[in-house]
């Protein structure tokens, strides 16, 4: 499978680009987001709830004078809620020209992946959250699930959180 992808890449005349991914844990699974979209990683701070906000919005935080909306990633991914602990982090990202924070269980590391090392995720999902995954990669016998942050919210939802 990997060979075929390599052949395809060579045939297309493209370089096997190396990409960096920030990995984080959520419900014992490892996810990766493109490092170019990550602005910073924060320890957990108080999140102020916003009345009338969508369920996937935990609230807002003040980041050096800027108001940042924090998304409940577990809820968005259809996972059960979990208590916040010392390892919980808020990852500040930029997607769809907006800056938001996502709450994760922990942040692990930055990994380097060649494009050829990324496979498509099994295409059996019909749920909304299936589209969040842009690929998977096998690292040290562990599966790294790569998240497409731009698809974390729909266009309407991106527009909605700007109004908060």
């Amino acid at each position: 499978m990997t060979d075929s992808r390599n052949v395809a890449a060579v045939a297309a005349g493209k370089e096997d680009v190396v990409l960096q991914w920030v990995t984080f844990k959520l419900d014992n699974e490892t996810y990766g987001i493109n490092v170019m979209q990550v602005q910073e990683v924060l320890r957990y701070t108080e999140i102020a709830p916003v009345p009338g906000a969508p369920l996937y919005v935990l609230g807002i935080i003040n980041l050096r004078g800027n108001v940042v909306t924090v998304i409940d990633t577990r809820s968005r991914f259809g996972l059960d809620a979990a208590e916040v602990d010392d390892s919980s982090r808020i990852v500040i990202i930029e997607a769809e020209k907006q800056v938001i924070g996502i709450l994760v269980d922990s942040v692990a590391e930055v990994v380097y992946l060649r494009r050829s090392e990324i496979d498509n995720a099994p295409n059996v999902g019909t749920e909304e959250s299936a589209k969040f995954i842009q690929g998977v990669s096998n690292r040290d016998n562990e599966l790294l699930i790569l998240v497409d942050l731009d698809k974390l919210l729909s266009d309407d939802e991106w527009a909605e959180i700007t109004q908060l």
Binding site: G78, P122, E127, V136
Partner: peptide, 15 residues
């Protein structure tokens, strides 16, 4: 490895 957004009968992926 559990994958989000998959049917409930899909336990996940094992390498």
């Amino acid at each position: 490895n559990h994958l989000i957004g998959r049917p409930n009968w899909f336990l996940g992926v094992q390498t």
